[in-house]
Computed example of a mutant assay.
Amino acid sequence: MSWQGCKNILCIRPDNMGDLIMTGPAIRALKTTFGARITVLTSSMAKGIIRHMPEIDDAIIYDLPWVKTAALPDAEGFNEVVAALKKKQFDAAVIFTVYSQNPLPTAMLAYLAGIPKILAYCRENPYHLLTDWLPDQEPYSFIKHQVRRDLDLVAAVGAFTTNPALQLQVSDTAWQPVAQKLTAAGIDVTRPWLILHPGVSEKKRAYPTTQWAEAARKLITEKGFQILITGSPAERQLTDELAGLTGAGSVSLGGMFSLHEYICLVKHTPVMLSVNTGSIHIAAAVGTPVVVLYAQTNPQHTPWGVPCRVLEFAVPVQLRSKNEVIAYVNKTHYNVPALMPAADDIIRAVDELLNSPGLPALPFPGKQNENLAIEAS
């Protein structure tokens, strides 16, 4: 059944901020192809980024109980969301997932709301819960970058875009208050500086603080950079600790910036250093090159469309996911654990990005490419 008449579309991406940013090109494809009004259903963790995504017209914020969030499940809230979706009278819904997620609970939400067309990837036969079903072949036959996965999903119903880039809108008028805050914190904005973003949402993604500090000290003493250590208000203790270990030339900025200001700050930095978290997708969306210390967890979430260097490291066995799909990826794609990158590896990656302005964007690290084939074992 054609989606050409779908002018009021619900996009469901109920995860973190970085996940929603990566869905932006697919949402753009739906909006431009069908001339549709786009509403997103997303989590409280992602709601702050919505105002910066021009593809989104409206939003419904709800933390679904089958998605990892800080909020406690609320059964009555679920019924209220179903009622709210019914009132919106959507023509269609698109459920965006990573390959390790089951879309059927979310499909039930859209089904109960009476949405006539529902599109998603799914491994098992969804029968009446999905009107448009793409059998999910990931990660057993191949792994795609998350952005490509989402674009291919909407392409199945005829939605395409000529602009697959991540995009976030931020006014340059935000730079003056950002610069004032940097100056007040002791940063000379006329001298070279880099962002270092160490905070993680999951312990298994953390790069050791002592090794961050060693790399930061070398960037200060050998390369002349000032190091801006950023994080959320909840990460202030971490940024303070890392600044203390690093010493002169670094400054702790945890909790200092609003999201709007942070996006502007990232846009103005020559290179970002970060772990695998939403910050790398913000950087990709404003065109900032990234060096990412990347725990071997989700190979499909590397920076999209910007020059990057991905330095992998193994996740300790006791911290690995119990999800059987992720366990399969650990046994196949990550069957050789990567050694922890050293400070010199980080310095070398920064040098490569700064000294190679024509360096191509790498959607996957090393041997991978955008549609990586994995031999099934």
Rank of each mutant, 00 (worst) to 15 (best):
L372N: 05
N335S: 14
L228A: 09
R205Q: 09
N125W: 04
S44D: 00
W133F: 06
L245F: 01
T190K: 15
L85Q: 01
T221I: 04
I21C: 03
D345G: 01
A36S: 10
P126Q: 09
A159R: 13
E124L: 07
I61S: 00
I115G: 08
Q368C: 11
I49G: 03
P135C: 07
F225S: 02
T210N: 01
P198M: 06
E370K: 05
Y99V: 11
P139S: 10
S44N: 03
T42S: 05
A156D: 10
P105L: 10
D240L: 11
Y111Q: 12
S258N: 02
L119W: 01
D188H: 13
I118D: 04
S44E: 05
G18N: 05
R13W: 02
T277G: 08
V147N: 08
W304D: 10
V81E: 03
A71N: 07
P270K: 15
P208M: 03
Q368M: 14
L311D: 04
V82Q: 03
V98G: 13
E55G: 05
P54E: 09
M272Y: 08
L293A: 00
I195A: 13
Y334E: 02
Q180D: 15
W133M: 08
Y207W: 01
R37Y: 06
A243W: 00
N16R: 09
T239D: 00
I56D: 02
E370C: 07
Q146W: 02
V98F: 10
H268Q: 12
T221K: 11
E80N: 06
S171Y: 12
G366P: 04
A75N: 01
P360E: 09
E202T: 11
L253G: 04
Q368T: 11
E375A: 13
A70L: 05
L104C: 07
M22S: 01
T246G: 00
P14Y: 04
K322N: 15
A285W: 12
Y99S: 09
V292T: 15
M1I: 06
L354P: 01
V67F: 05
L219D: 03
G305H: 11
G24T: 11
P360T: 10
T183S: 15
K7Y: 02
L72Q: 05
G366E: 14
E76G: 06
I38P: 00
V178T: 14
T162C: 12
T106M: 09
L362N: 13
P357V: 12
P65C: 00
I95A: 06
K87T: 08
L238K: 04
P233K: 05
T288Q: 12
L20W: 00
L130V: 08
L293M: 09
T23K: 03
R148W: 06
E222Y: 02
R13Q: 10
L253P: 07
R191D: 13
A234Q: 09
L339Q: 06
A93S: 09
L293R: 00
K181Q: 15
A110V: 08
Y99N: 07
T297S: 15
E202H: 13
R28Q: 10
E76Q: 07
L153V: 11
Q226E: 05
A343P: 04
P54D: 10
Y334L: 04
D150Q: 12
P270Y: 08
E261W: 08
R191C: 14
A215C: 04
W304Q: 11
G5R: 01
L273W: 06
